[in-house]
Amino acid sequence: MEKNFKQTSRTGSLAWLLQRLSAVVLFVLLLFHFLTYHFLTRTRAVEYRQVLERAQSWWFPLLQFAFLITALYHGLNGIWSVLEDYTTNKHWRLAWYCLLLTVGVVLLFVGTLTIIKLYTLKVG
């Protein structure tokens, strides 16, 4: 019966901790997101110029990037832990892991591009 168990891998504690930390960070960022988008606008309607101005302030891209990283990490790590629970075959696990990694890299690339594009867009 004993052979069913591997020695401790000391894995999981960091993932667990980071998942919780990223949740806290996401919570704060979300609050900030709502604040800036819905409450701190100077005019009633959302205006192109105003949005673009904000997008090109020094702090905005940094925040958006942090948001992107934490959301991606938190979401994908969550899905990974679900997949890990229900996939015991190690080949399948590897396949899922590669897929999630690819999805992560692609989304990171697209997200980063968007932030950069907004930042560099000429205000008309």
């Binding site: 168990f5 591997k6 401790t8 891998s9 000391r10 894995t11 999981g12 504690s13 993932a15 667990w16 832990s81 890990e84 629970d85």
Partner: peptide, 14 residues
């Protein structure tokens, strides 16, 4: 704690 610090230990509790 060393034993339960494993993906098949306490970390599989969600």
């Amino acid at each position: 704690l060393e034993i339960v610090n494993d993906k098949n230990g306490v970390w599989r509790c969600h």
